[in-house]
Design a protein around this nucleic acid. Sequence first.
DNA 1: AATTCAATGGACAGACAGTAAATCCAAAAT
DNA 2: ATTTTGGATTTACTGTCTGTCCATTGAATT
Lengths: 196, 196
Amino acid sequence: MSPRVYKSDKRQAAAEDTRLRILTAARSLLAAAKPTQITLDGIAKAADVSRQTVYNAFGTRAGLLEALFDGLATRAGVDLSEAFAAPDVDAALRRFTETFSRFWAADPVAIRRLRGMAVLDSELDRLLRERDDMRRTALGSLLAARGVEVGPETIDVVWQLTGFEVYDGLARRDPERDPTGPIADAVSAVYAAARG
Amino acid sequence: MSPRVYKSDKRQAAAEDTRLRILTAARSLLAAAKPTQITLDGIAKAADVSRQTVYNAFGTRAGLLEALFDGLATRAGVDLSEAFAAPDVDAALRRFTETFSRFWAADPVAIRRLRGMAVLDSELDRLLRERDDMRRTALGSLLAARGVEVGPETIDVVWQLTGFEVYDGLARRDPERDPTGPIADAVSAVYAAARG
DNA sequence: AATTCAATGGACAGACAGTAAATCCAAAAT
DNA sequence: ATTTTGGATTTACTGTCTGTCCATTGAATT
């Protein structure tokens, strides 16, 4: 009765494929007009998969949302090397702002809804705050690497200025205008004032 | 068979009372630790009232949330007269920032959850954006009354800086520190830079 | 040919929103 | 005093959604 060990390749690939199909279906539903349809049943149908399969793949609704968020983060491929390579602090902050603006702009509706759901889901909330803290840490490093001396409050404000809510708030107010420039200008102004 | 006309006073008062009981119960549940319990049943039990009564008073869950939000807004009694009476623009902006900081600080958890729910409820979303736009309008008037000439992008950024999300983001990061000062400083810096 | 495993379909329990109807009771009108 | 009204309650129902269990299918692997 020694159990055979089955090492897959097609099977694992197929599983990964359905996993991806579910994620993309969930993402498009999340970004769609009707927020009503964001249900496991709806996602499963959109992915042409049984509801049970979603549970097999992600365990729970929260698990799916977390995977979805991770997918958004990695898909956008936030890359701060440009910011770190910038010639001066001002340019670095501008690159930093632009990098995250691109990230937020990639899928604002989905991000907005995910962040909304996080308010009622402490686990998802923890995840999002963790990510936001990473942005704050990166910003701190970016400035520390140049020996910049500004108080933590200043960094915190810049951190918020480059966050999703400010971007989304501005973008929703006037969908024509790209908020990136104004935000970058504000960051610059705040930094300049803090440096004295 | 002429139908009698019933003009109340005790009855209407009693109805208003239960309405208030429901609202305060909902508010405390909304601000409580467990976000799980925010259900019509839970609210009704907390208000010591039957679930039907909640429906009689507010029609629907969304209606209750809207009334709740209106209650928060009027309870806090946002008063911008100080800001409008300030000696100079800088002071005016500082008063403006302080006024809304106080508002956000009054019940941050409840506000956060309401705003989170709005993401999935287009009606509530419309209401919140309306309120946010009022803040933007007030800010515009505050500056226009002094003949200040800055671009709308600058006003928009200040508008976002004085919004709930920035305040809450900073307050959650460090519950010890009051974010009002740093925000006011940032507003000042952004304004100064825009004026040139 | 035997085994495994992803996926399916169906059934079920538990929460929750929302609706409907019968009833109770105190306040208001006659 | 009696009738009428309307707020509130109780009970029960529909419908939706999450989460779980399980028997079964069928293709991939041994």
